[in-house]
Design a binder for these strands. Structure first.
Lengths: 375, 375
DNA sequence: CGGCTCAATTTGATCGATCAAATTTGTCCG
DNA sequence: CGGACAAATTTGATCGATCAAATTGAGCCG
C-alpha cells in the first residue's frame, strides 16, 4: 500500500482531516481522548505530512539556504566543514532542512536568493564571509527576507556597524589577546604579530587584540616594530617569521594557521630546537608560535592555535533565525549585543540577535618527532 | 504586486493555464506564435513555477539528498569540501537542488532517508564512504529509490562486488602504481609503502597498486619487507617511516597525506636534507615521499601526492543520477564498467553507470625553506 | 424544556501547478 | 460545401495539506 495521507487516515479513523491536522498543529483544540486515538493511529500508520502540500498552503517551506563557497584554501577553509555540519545538525533538530547552492559572486548570490525564494520558497538564508557594504544583506533586508550572518557587519571604515540584522561572530581580538597573555605567562616579552595585508577587517581585528595585549603589558613601544604583514600562505609565513626573528621576536602570534605553519617551518631550520620548543623563555617544550583557527594541520603538528567555537556559532545562528521565523520578527526591543554565551543558552528568553563569541587558545606541545635525537 | 502564478499570467495573456504550462514543459505542443508571446510574457513578469505546487502534482521534488559526515579528520577530510562544492554546482546546473542532512550511524541514515522521502519527497540520494555489505544501498535498492555512490561497493572479502547500482570511484591502485613508477623514474628502487591497518578495502586497494608496480619492476621480493602498516595519523606516519628507513627504504608511498606528513617530519630530522630532497637517487631536490589525496597541507608543504579527481567524480555522479531520474531506470543493458572518462563526456550516450576514474600524481618540490642555509 | 454558550468536530474553499479528457480551430480533399 | 482528422487550446479534476466558516454536541441555567 502507498503512503498514508490525511484523507486516507481520516477515513480509516472515521474522523475528519481537520481533526488529524489539529492533533499535529494545535493539539489543545482536540479532546484528549480523540487526540490519543489519533496519535496512536499516526504512529501506527507511520503517517508524515507532505512538506510540499503544507508549503503550498502555508507558504512556508521549512527550508533554509546557504551558499557554498569554493574551497579556495583548505587549510583555513577547514573550519567550514565543522560549521556546515553543526549548521545542518542544528537546522535538522529545529525541524528545518538545509539547501545548498553555489554562486560565482555576491551579485550572482542575490540572483540565486531570488530564484530560490520564488521557486523553492526558502524561508531564510545563512550568510558567511560578511563584507563591508554587503549587497546581499541590503537586498535581503529591503525585501524583508529573514537571514542571519556568520560574521559581523563591517562598515567601510572597517569598524563594526550596527544595521540591526542578526549575526554571530567570533571575537578575533580577544583570541589574539589571550594568545599574547599565554606567551607572556611563559616568559616571553618580544612577541611578534604576523598578519594579513591591510584591508581585511577580520585581519585588522586580530591584529588589534595583539596590540591591546602588548600595550597592556607595557610593550606598546614594540608594536610598530613587531607587527608584520604577509600574504596568507605558508611561504608568506616563512618570510614574515624570518623578518620578525631578525627584529628580535622570540614568540609569534599569527592571523592564520597557514602563516603559523610557514613560520614554524622556517624557524625550525633557522634555530633548530631552540626557538620552536620554547627554549628562550617557555619551559617544558612549549611552542612559541600560535596560529589561528585551530585547523587539523595545527592539531597534527602540535601547533598552538586560537580555536573558534564554530559549532556554537552555527547553533546560535539557527537559534536566532528560527526564532525570527517563528514570528518574532525584528526585535530592536530585546536581546541585543550580548558578549557571552549565557544569553544564548537560555531557551526561554529570546536569543541574542547579535552575539560575539570568545575563542580560546589551544596550547600544544610540538610533535616530539620534531625534537632532535628521537629518530 | 505579488508573485505571478500560472493563473494570473493566463488571465493577463488571455490564454489558459495549460497553454503556459505547455510552453514550459512541452513547447512542441504550442503553436510557435503563441509560444513566443507566452515566453515573452513569462520573461517580462519574471514568472517562475512553484516547486511545491509542481511537486504536489508530479511527485517529483527536483531535490537530492546527501548525508554530511562529521569532520573527523580534516587533513584527509579536506577533499570533502571540493566534492561537495562540485556536487552542488553540478546538481544546480542540472536543475536539481541539494539537501543536506546528518546522521550518527548508517541505520540512522536509513531512517533519515525514509523521513526525507516521505516528508520532502527527495528524488534521490548521493552516498559516500561505501562499506562492505552496506545497509544503505540494500535499503535504497529494495525500495527502488534512485541513488549513486561515491565509492565502489566492496563485498565482505574486500573485493569489488557488482550489485548493479550506479557508482563512481577513483582507482586508488592506479594512483599508487603511478607514484611508484614516478619514484622508479627518479632512480629509487627500495620504495616502501606506508598504509593503514588491514580491514579497509580502500587501504588494501592502494597497497595493491604499490605491490603491482614493485613486482612489475622486478622488486617483488621486497614487497613483504617494505610494506608497513600504521594508524592513519601524523604520529603513525612518523613511526612507520622510521621502521621503513631502518629496513633500507629510500622512498615512500603513503596511503594518506597524514601518514606522509608524519613521515616527512620524521625523516627531516633523521636525515636532514639527504632523504627529503631526494639525494639518494632523485635529482634536483625532488621529494621521495608521496602522499595521497593531495590535501591543501601537501600543497602548502611541497609534498608530492596522489590527487583524486573529485570534481569529475561529483559531476559524473550527478550525471548518472539525473539520467536515471529522467526515466532511464536500471540499465544492465548499456554503459557499464567504463575505465576512463571518455564515456562520461559524451552527453548523447548514456553515462556509464559504473565509472573508475584515474587519479594523477602531483609532483612537488619540497619547500625551499626546509633546505638548510636559506634562513 | 428552550435557549445560550463554549468546546469539539466537520465542511468547503484554497494554495499553484499538472494530468487527462473535452473542445475548438485549422487543413485538406472529395 | 461539408466532413474527417490532426493540431491547438481549454476545462475540470487532482495532488495533500491548512484556513476560515459552519455545524454538531454538551453543559448549564432560568
Amino acid at each position: 500500500m502507498s503512503r498514508p495521507t490525511l484523507a486516507s487516515l481520516a477515513r480509516e479513523l472515521a474522523v475528519s482531516r481537520q481533526t488529524i491536522s489539529n492533533v499535529l498543529n494545535a493539539p489543545h483544540k482536540v479532546k484528549p481522548a480523540t487526540r490519543e486515538r489519533v496519535q496512536a493511529a499516526i504512529a501506527a500508520a507511520g503517517y508524515r505530512p507532505s512538506a510540499a502540500a503544507r508549503q503550498l498552503r502555508t507558504q512556508r517551506s521549512m527550508n533554509l539556504g546557504m551558499r557554498l563557497f569554493p574551497a579556495t584554501d583548505g587549510i583555513n577553509g577547514a573550519i567550514l566543514d565543522r560549521f556546515l555540519h553543526a549548521l545542518t545538525e542544528a537546522a535538522q533538530s529545529a525541524g528545518y532542512r538545509l539547501t545548498l547552492f553555489c554562486a560565482d559572486s555576491d551579485e550572482e548570490e542575490v540572483r540565486q536568493y531570488e530564484q530560490l525564494l520564488d521557486v523553492a520558497g526558502l524561508d531564510g538564508f545563512i550568510l558567511t564571509s560578511s563584507k563591508p557594504d554587503d549587497v546581499r544583506t541590503h537586498w535581503l533586508g529591503e525585501r524583508g527576507t529573514p537571514f542571519a550572518v556568520f560574521g559581523r557587519p563591517w562598515d567601510a571604515a572597517g569598524d563594526v556597524a550596527v544595521p540591526g540584522h542578526p549575526w554571530v561572530d567570533v571575537d578575533g581580538a580577544a583570541g589574539t589577546e589571550e594568545a599574547v597573555r599565554m606567551l607572556l605567562g611563559q616568559g616571553h616579552s618580544r612577541i611578534g604579530f604576523l598578519g594579513w595585508p591591510m584591508g581585511s577587517p577580520v585581519g585588522a581585528d586580530r591584529r588589534h587584540g595583539w596590540e591591546r595585549a602588548m600595550s597592556a603589558a607595557g610593550y606598546a613601544v614594540d608594536v610598530p616594530v613587531l607587527g608584520v604583514e604577509a600574504e596568507d600562505t605558508v611561504a608568506g609565513g616563512a618570510s614574515g617569521a624570518a623578518l620578525l626573528v631578525s627584529r628580535g621576536a622570540t614568540a609569534l602570534v599569527c592571523s592564520s594557521d597557514s602563516l603559523a605553519l610557514g613560520a614554524m617551518e622556517k624557524l625550525r631550520e633557522a634555530q633548530p630546537g631552540a626557538f620552536l620548543s620554547g627554549q628562550p623563555a617557555g619551559p617544558d617544550g612549549r611552542a612559541a608560535i600560535v596560529g589561528f583557527d585551530d585547523t587539523p594541520v595545527a592539531a597534527a603538528l602540535g601547533l598552538s592555535s586560537v580555536a573558534q567555537p564554530v559549532e556554537a556559532a552555527a547553533r546560535h545562528i539557527i537559534r536566532v533565525l528560527t526564532h525570527e521565523l517563528a514570528g518574532n520578527v525584528n526585535g530592536a526591543a530585546a536581546g541585543n549585543a550580548a558578549t557571552n554565551a549565557a544569553a544564548a543558552r537560555d531557551a526561554s528568553t529570546p536569543p541574542a540577535r547579535q552575539l560575539l563569541l570568545a575563542p580560546r587558545v589551544v596550547e600544544r606541545i610540538p610533535l616530539p618527532l620534531a625534537a632532535p635525537g628521537s629518530g
